[in-house]
Structure formats: structure tokens, C-alpha cells
Design a protein around this nucleic acid. Structure first.
Lengths: 204, 204
DNA sequence: GCTCGGCTCATATCTTCGTATGACTGGCGA
DNA sequence: TCGCCAGTCATACGAAGATATGAGCCGAGC
């Protein structure tokens, strides 16, 4: 199930990285470890499914700041946070920022494994949804500008006649664009097209 | 903005309840306070917008257990947790269960007000969405069984002819039910009906 | 200059949809 | 028993949609 997921460990403590690596590998997970957030970002090996295991306290950037900057860096990996000297506000901040779990050292191996497993599962789910949205967007990109306009208005529920009026076209032209949009989008019915438009967040 | 929202305080410490009540009222919020989870549940005054402020440690049920049982009790109020003797696992548990915030005593008044304000805002948003879904469901209830079947298949993208085949009806009958469903649901176009069906989570 | 693709429109034909009118049946409550 | 309502179906007509064929315009790139 988790064969090709990678656990990314970011911690300045080499011995802890080694211990965690061993733990994750012992259950069949792949691991990459980094001594700093910068090292993680520069390697860019986080394109597959996986998760991030972050220490809060690291030299330089705080793990919390790093976690909050991940979105801006284009990283969508779920985060499991850990710390040796944590407090409640720190925990709340991490959880509000979307951390899957926040573990205080020393933690039980099983707790870490459970957290990582949950994180990977969430990432897989998020990726599969994102993949669908991406595929849809790719198809939408193949539409000509006119076809997109027509698709938008049609999905909003307008009749060909109304679309023609809005775009100042003849109804025949609208039908042609409409047919082309349906074909290119792979929509067999109007209902399909409406759902695609919603998934693409086109205006109604 | 928050005129008619009610902050529900559940804490066995009467002096703290009083202090919090004063704080909330000072910013124009209404307050109800209870000395135990059971007291809160028995009063059933939580139908409007608002939020819950819970102490973790109370005689009898733990605030955490209580928080997790709220869904089962039909309570959808967001929770702001507070505690005098908290630890990280407790915080994580509360946040995973959906708490808006988790405040360690002593906390700053402003932090509590911010948390409560965010909680109420979330509740308002959730309520307005739920209200829409409820309104939609109510209209769906006015449909006859046949009309519901037809609506479902139509929203799935089937043509009248196919619907007729699936339900072993004549196409004319399908048209009649379809028209009735559109009228009763207030759908002016097929696109509307499709979106309603999605919002109702009808099978595709 | 020329081709190609996007955009435009017309005519024609067929399918599908929407709705009105009218009618028959069966169940359920007054 | 009577009336009402959901459900069923038919005929008919007009509106809307889908598609094919043919054609003219224009801008970008070879």
C-alpha cells in the first residue's frame, strides 16, 4: 500500500534522523532525511506521495515557520511535527496550520508510525483528487477562448439562444462551439459538463 | 455582527464562569453558563449561532470526552477548549477533534475573545450552509417517489428515453415527472437540477 | 504569398425536450 | 361511496438541441 511513499525527515539532530530512518524503513517505508529546511527545499525530491516529519526546534528557521511557508513553496506534503520542548501554544499553532500530529519527545515508536501512516494516507487521497482536477484542467486548456466562454455560459444554465445574445453571436455558432467543447472535455451529457464546470470553479 | 450569538460556558469553577461571562458581555456577546456538561445538555438552549467554551478538567466527564460526544448529541457548536493543567497529547486530541483553539490558563483575555469570535464566525458559516442544504432537502421531500427517481436519473445525465427504459415507463410519463420535479425543486434549468442533485448527494 | 486554425454564419434534417389537453387506474381517507 | 391524488399513457405542437455540409474572414507563422 505504502510502497512508493517517502517519509521526509527534517531535523538537525543526526542521531535522531538515523533512529527515525531505521524505524520507518523497518515497516517498509522509504526515507529521505535532511539536516535543515533549506536542505529539504533544495533537493526537491518531494514530488511523489509521502509526508514530512519536522522538528520544531532547529537552528535558523523554526519548524513552525517552515511548516507555514510550505504552501508558498509549492509543497503539499502533510506534516507530522515533533519536539523535545513543546508547549501548548506551539501545539495549537502547528495543528491550526494543518499538522497531522504533534508528538512530544520521547514518543512511542508506534505513535510516530501511526501519525506518518495517517499523513501518507491523507496525502494519497489529496493527490488523487488533485490529479483529477489537473486532468480536467488540461482538457480545459485545449479549448479555444470562444469555446471556454460558451462552455461557461452553457454550464451556468443558459440556453443557446441566450448564450448567443450574451456573446453577440448567432445561435448556430454557439451550437458549434458548444459541440466542440463537449467533445474536447469528454462530456457525454450536459450534466457532465455542468459538473466539470463546477470542478473547474467556473463562475455561474 | 455577533448580536444574537450565544457563548456557552461549561466549567465547574463558578468564579471563572463569572469572570468569563463578564468578559464576553463586555464585548456585546450573550452568555449562558453551566456547571457541568450534563447541565448544558439538559437545558438545550443551543439552537442559535454561538460556540462552546469548555474546561478540560471537570468533575465527572472530561471536557475532551464531552467534546467528542457532542456530534452524537446533535450539537454542532464549535468548541474553544481551556485548561489549567494541559499537556501536548491533550491539546492534540482536542484539536484533532475539531477544537477551534486550546488555551492554557492563564490566558490573555484577547486570546479568548479572538478564539470565541473565530468559533462563532465558523458556526455562522456552517449554519448558513446547513440552512441551504436543509431548505433543499425540504423541497426534495415534496417530490413524489417517482419524481425523485426521475430527478435522480435525469441529473445523472440520462435522456428521457433512457430514464423511461430504466424505470419501465413511457417517455411521456417521464417528461411529466421531470417537469414536476423541476417545478417543485425550483430549478429553472437542467444545470440547476444537476447542482441540486449533487448538493443532495444523489447517486450518479 | 500561402496555409492553417480559429471564428463566423447559413441551410437543412433529425432528435430531444417542454407542455398542454385529455383520459384511465388504483389506493386512501372523509 | 365519493373524491382526491399519484401514477400511467396518448396525441399534438412548438421550442430547443445536435450535427452535417458548405462557405467567407482574418491573423499568425512558414
Amino acid at each position: 500500500m505504502n510502497e512508493d511513499a517517502i517519509v521526509h525527515i527534517v531535523d538537525d539532530d543526526a542521531s535522531l534522523r538515523k533512529a527515525l530512518s531505521g524505524l520507518f524503513r523497518s515497516v517498509g517505508l522509504s526515507v529521505c532525511d535532511y539536516e535543515s529546511p533549506a536542505a529539504f527545499l533544495s533537493e526537491k525530491r518531494y514530488d511523489g506521495p509521502g509526508c514530512l516529519v519536522l522538528d520544531v526546534r532547529m537552528p535558523g528557521a523554526s519548524g513552525l515557520d517552515f511548516q507555514e511557508s510550505l504552501d508558498g513553496e509549492g509543497v503539499d506534503l502533510p506534516v507530522v511535527m515533533m519536539t523535545g520542548h513543546g508547549d501548548i501554544p506551539m501545539t495549537v499553532r502547528a495543528m491550526k496550520a494543518g499538522a497531522i500530529d504533534f508528538l512530544a519527545k520521547p514518543f512511542r515508536d508506534q505513535d510516530m508510525l501511526d501519525a506518518v501512516s495517517a499523513a501518507i494516507e491523507r496525502h494519497r487521497a489529496a493527490r488523487s483528487i488533485a490529479a483529477g482536477a489537473c486532468e480536467l484542467h488540461a482538457r480545459f486548456e485545449t479549448l479555444s477562448p470562444r469555446e471556454r466562454q460558451v462552455m461557461e455560459l452553457v454550464a451556468a444554465g443558459k440556453m443557446n439562444k441566450q448564450v448567443a445574445g450574451d456573446l453577440e453571436l448567432s445561435e448556430i455558432t454557439v451550437k458549434i462551439h458548444r459541440g466542440a467543447a463537449m467533445r474536447k472535455m469528454g462530456a457525454r451529457t450536459l450534466a457532465d459538463l455542468v459538473r466539470m464546470a463546477d470542478a473547474l470553479a467556473l463562475p455561474r
